[in-house]
Design a protein around this nucleic acid. Structure first.
Lengths: 346, 346
DNA sequence: AGCGTATGGGAAACCGGTGTCATTGACAAG
DNA sequence: CTTGTCAATGACACCGGTTTCCCATACGCT
């Protein structure tokens, strides 16, 4: 009877006149193998174009080779950067990536995730912010026995479960840069409540102002939710102030684009009348006019590292190089910052 | 001995005092079952929280429940919209989505894909443009026995394997709109060679001009490659012309943003001095100033439909509703188009 | 009562791998 | 010449489902 599908381990074993087990040993690079035998089996494998069936392997090994990406991040570029970083790490391994967006705000979010994890029995999941900041999600993974690594803007878990950037420090440095340019009235467009990144960035902002002895009236802080529109609305509030700020730090680029928009509508020139610093260094930052000075967040590298952490120890050759847990963001200087006008007159 | 993992079909069978096969029948809703038995088994399943192991199922059924998304599209928003549409379709089914970016231009691209498909034995793949336009990829899927559906901007395969938008017609309508506003010198920023969408959009543009009896000198066409930078460069070429165009159709939004950028650098006012129409309706279109008049491409719906086509017939309850194969793009009018100045003086 | 037939349900093989343990032969040590 | 050790390999059960086939019972009919 003609076999229809791909060759199996049995075909290889039969043709090479060895047992399945020996073929299995060849595949798994067992050291206890005669070189002649190995060669013979390898030849047959090559000739047949045999590829082990991952489903069967998964069943026998009682674990599968799927890594989940769980996210509820609204920014497409960010999500795709993470995907790219993950896939880079998974490339060459036997793991594949399955993507699971979560509906933040949905009451059944946790239940959905549990269902997903239990059904698919994933080898591990990578948690993207903001859902990664949710401790009950991490506890759920633990309870189910699913490995996980969280990405975030501050260290909120042990090194094996965490890959973080130093948002607070990065924003402090960015703000210090504005201060060094001579700015004293600096506004903040904050991120949404409940986002750890929003909090870290705000703290970094306050750190810098505090260290420079600059007062931060509540009116200089406007809330946003990381969207273009919210940035626009926040900027309108800030630009109505008398005197108005000479610089604004925006907690992400998307909102910074909204701020630019708002400033332009009032006929303000950037950076002459208003300096702006963003965060993320998404493509939008380089595409607005003027190009945005912003903080670059090494997101793909973080995701890559997170994925490597996840599959570390999964026998398949991945060396036990300790993956870093902290990634440093850097300030990218472009054209949206200049000294304030009133500094020149001083 | 304490079982460590999740309950299996054997546990259910033992506790319900039936055979594995009967449990299997319950799971698969076999009609030849006594209601009492069914109830009893269902109770045990609920009590244990039993969930069938997809790996074991995949092995026994000789097929798995993974749908691949194969893409080499540089636009993050587009890719994510497709993912969202796919996941919508897959939601509630037992299928999961695995993502596979391809390195267009890589010589081993086809070999990489073959390797991926053979190893993972995917149930099916969804092909995004531009790779979906590559016939050898489709043939590869056929040869391997992997189902596939292609997304594209023109019908290039039979309805079972294709979900298309009507780019040509949509661009014709968009261009007719520019003509109706009074424009006669209209430039085109074309997409990259080898992209079907680029060709279709160009053809639609030419259709409209031809029907209106407007000549299209070669100089009015500038090549781009769908990136912001290429749009900027193309616009610089077009805006150097004497007389310069009063309107430009850009084959996508990203390049349109570049055109806006270039126009602004020359002190041109949009839309007074230059009207611009884009394509895609990505978020960028609403965020540039002025908001971009563009063609909206129902990409998530297309992806949803494509995924439904893929899993159609996979027993699991999905009705045999015939999924549409052609999706209509629509013109979204925003602020980047106005009548030309010289029309007013005429 | 005897018999065919439909229906519910079980035993065992199978899917394609891996783990455990036994077997074999070669060789060094006693 | 035995015995022990070790390297190389095979036999067989197992992972958790599905499929095939077969049996037992209940029912309708003559």
């Amino acid at each position: 009877m003609q076999k229809t599908g791909q060759p199996t381990i049995n075909d290889v074993a039969r043709i090479a006149s060895v047992s399945k087990k020996t073929v299995s040993r060849v595949i798994n690079r067992s050291p206890l193998l005669n070189d002649d035998t190995r060669k013979r089996v390898e030849d047959v494998i090559a000739e047949l174009g045999y590829i082990p069936n991952p489903q069967a392997r998964a069943l026998a090994l009682r674990r599968n080779f799927l890594i989940g990406l769980v996210h509820d991040n609204p920014n497409a570029q960010t999500v795709l950067n993470v995907q790219q970083g993950m896939l880079e790490a998974l490339h060459g391994s036997e793991f594949e990536m399955v993507v699971r967006p979560l509906d933040r705000g949905s009451a059944t979010m946790l239940e959905d995730l549990r269902h997903f994890l239990e059904r698919q029995r994933l080898f591990g999941v990578l948690l993207m912010p903001p859902v990664s900041e949710n401790d009950s999600v991490a506890r759920l993974c633990d309870a189910i026995g699913c490995r996980y690594v969280r990405m975030g803007s501050a260290v909120i878990d042990d090194n094996d479960h965490m890959v973080a950037s130093n948002d607070r420090e990065a924003v402090r440095i960015a703000t210090e840069y504005l201060i060094a340019q001579g700015h004293r009235r600096i506004g903040l467009v904050a991120g949404p409540h409940g986002f750890r990144s929003a909090r870290e960035r705000r703290l970094g902002f306050e750190d810098a102002l505090g260290a420079a002895g600059i007062a931060l009236p509540r009116s200089m802080i406007a809330d946003g939710n990381y969207t273009f529109e919210s940035g626009l609305a926040a900027a309108e509030r800030l630009l109505d102030l008398m005197p108005r700020p000479t610089a604004i730090f925006s907690s992400n680029d998307e909102m910074a684009a909204g701020i630019i928009h708002a400033a332009r509508q009032r006929g303000l020139d950037i950076p002459r009348d208003l300096s702006i610093v963003g965060f993320d260094d998404t493509p939008i930052a380089a595409h607005v006019w003027p190009p945005l000075t912003t903080v670059r967040w090494p997101i793909a590298s973080m995701a890559r590292s997170a994925a490597l952490k996840l599959i570390a120890g999964a026998d398949d050759g991945s060396d036990l190089v300790e993956e870093p847990s902290l990634f440093l963001s850097t300030l990218i200087r472009r054209g949206s910052v200049a000294p304030p006008l009133d500094a020149e007159t001083a």
